[in-house]
């Protein structure tokens, strides 16, 4: 079973890459719709202009939100939408018939999109970061080494939760309300809209709650590794917390999937 799955992976990836390339124009437009980090960048640098806000100078905010843009581009996926759509139209039945777990197949189809996303987003963000935020970039070798695993874990946490959300499509045919609610929490609690310590200046309780949720593992942690000044213990702890949440979120996603599958009534044919 496992050997068969492993053998299928290269093919699944190739199919995924072919799909992304086939819809490259659409894909490019989707990539460009990630404007929130830049909009927030403009706002917070304006707020901090000529001084500091919550310990951040305008340059600090610039570095933070450009790092944010990179993290968002590399770690986001739309597997929830994909699943909800497949359940609604009935094409999920096809997926279930194949001798490979849909979790693996969907993971590969999302992973295959990564190089394309990175190709568009990373050069732009890296140039911007190097020209206007280079003072903030970390030079610590451990932080740099942990960056890639941290991004990977952020991706897995996000994927696990999105997978759970997609699986709620087994109960509700319209998952948009749940997805929107999830995205609202994500924006507020992950550090996507503003750094969590800035949020803490006005809403200390909300910021505190955020640290007990998986959301900071998706945005805040990789950003801090990229531009933060952490000692080694802090950096390793960040990664450990992310690792813990990755396990929990994937387990949660699969648990929701299993429960939902029992209720599955194939629609269409």
């Amino acid at each position: 079973m496992i050997a068969r799955t492993l053998r299928a992976i290269p093919t699944l990836l190739r199919v995924g890459v072919a799909e992304t390339v086939a819809y490259r124009a659409e894909f490019l437009v989707w990539t460009l719709t990630t404007t929130i980090p830049l909009i927030m960048l403009a706002f917070w640098t304006s707020v901090a202009r000529g001084g500091q806000f919550a310990g951040y100078t305008a340059a600090d905010f610039t570095a933070y939100f450009l790092a944010n843009l990179i993290v968002r581009q590399v770690t986001s996926n739309w597997v929830g939408w994909q699943m909800a759509e497949e359940i609604r139209t009935g094409s999920m039945s096809m997926r279930l018939l194949r001798p490979i777990h849909p979790f693996v197949a969907l993971t590969m189809s999302q992973v295959a999109a990564l190089p394309f996303r990175s190709m568009i987003a990373i050069p732009v963000a890296v140039i911007l970061l190097a020209t206007s935020g280079s003072h903030a970039l970390t030079t610590d070798p451990l932080q740099l080494a942990l960056l890639v695993p941290s991004l990977a874990l952020a991706w897995i946490v996000n994927f696990g939760l999105m997978f759970a959300m997609g699986a709620t499509g087994f109960w509700f045919t319209q998952v948009y309300a749940i997805a929107n609610f999830y995205f609202a929490l994500y924006m507020l609690l992950s550090g996507y809209m503003m750094p969590l310590d800035v949020l803490a200046t006005k809403q200390p309780l909300v910021a505190k709650i955020a640290h007990y949720t998986p959301f900071p593992s998706m945005v805040d942690a990789p950003i801090r590794l990229l531009i933060g000044h952490l000692d080694h213990a802090q950096a390793l702890r960040l990664l450990a917390v992310q690792g813990g949440w990755a396990v929990v979120c994937v387990a949660f996603g699969i648990a929701v999937w299993r429960r939902g599958l029992r209720r599955f009534e194939a629609v269409g044919g």
Binding site: F43, A54, N180, F181, A184, M193, M194, L199, T201
Partner: peptide, 28 residues
């Protein structure tokens, strides 16, 4: 559900303003 979501997003959209004006008199 849409009504409830609208409320959530209205609150969310104004959060940056609320936080910024917690420590500042002007945004621009």
């Amino acid at each position: 559900a849409q009504g409830a979501m609208a409320l959530v997003f209205i609150v969310l959209t104004v959060v940056p303003l609320l936080v910024a004006f917690g420590g500042q008199a002007k945004v621009a």
